[in-house]
Design a protein around this nucleic acid. Structure first.
Lengths: 114, 114
DNA sequence: CGTTCGTGTAACCATATGGTTGTACGTTAG
DNA sequence: CTAACGTACAACCATATGGTTACACGAACG
């Protein structure tokens, strides 16, 4: 039986890994997991312009790793942990490929006999 | 006790996720996990030039997700599964962050009493 | 009401990316 | 020895990325 997780398109996976391929963005994800916060609160932590941080958040949002929710004039950034879990499951598939391969080789060796 | 995995630098993590942020490269990883094979054997499977595939392999190699071993005039590409495991462990840390946060909130609520 | 705050967006820049073609070079098959 | 093979690498191109500054706009404080 296949564990049915909402399937991700190749473009989704591209977006997720691309979003995670930047130190600042990984840091933002970690921060908002710890505590959701506004874009400007995030921007204060980094030695770059507000606009740059805003762009990073936009990349994370495009990958659906975070979502923004307006609260008055602030935009609060929340983590979407489910997406990170999906990425992990993707990597897990490679392990499964590997195990399958090992099994396959073992069974071939068994057939050959001692 | 902390599970000691050889620590990855930020640059390493950048390289790993960047390498995985491309469909062709993910496909190459899957193929060489199934069965190690030459660069030209890989190149046959894709609708792009040999040089392009060669570049993709180079990106994977820079991220240490694969290694090449020369066999005569062929260059055989092998998977480095350990690196994929590391990437998975990285994603797992976000889960741990999340659990820690939930625990923290729960204990605050406990303190407050009913 | 005006002003400040938080955000969004556009224009711009340097560099990286993903692709191409062409060329060079060592290795192996005939 | 020669030809073909597998690989490496350079030059080139279009587009994307990660950063900047400047400006526009709605919400909220006073």
């Amino acid at each position: 039986m296949v564990t049915r997780t909402h399937e991700l398109s190749d473009a989704d996976v591209d977006a997720i890994f691309h979003a995670l391929a930047d130190r600042t963005r990984r840091d933002i994800v970690a921060r908002v997991i710890e505590r959701e916060q506004s874009v400007s609160a995030l921007a204060e932590r980094y030695a770059m312009s507000f606009a740059a941080v805003q762009k990073h958040v936009a990349v994370l949002q495009k990958a659906a790793l975070v979502r923004k929710e307006r609260d008055g004039r602030q935009q609060i950034v929340h983590a979407e942990l489910e997406r990170l879990r999906r990425a992990q499951q993707l990597l897990d598939r490679y392990e499964q490929l590997w195990r399958h391969r090992v099994d396959r080789i073992a069974s071939i060796l068994d057939e050959e006999g001692p």
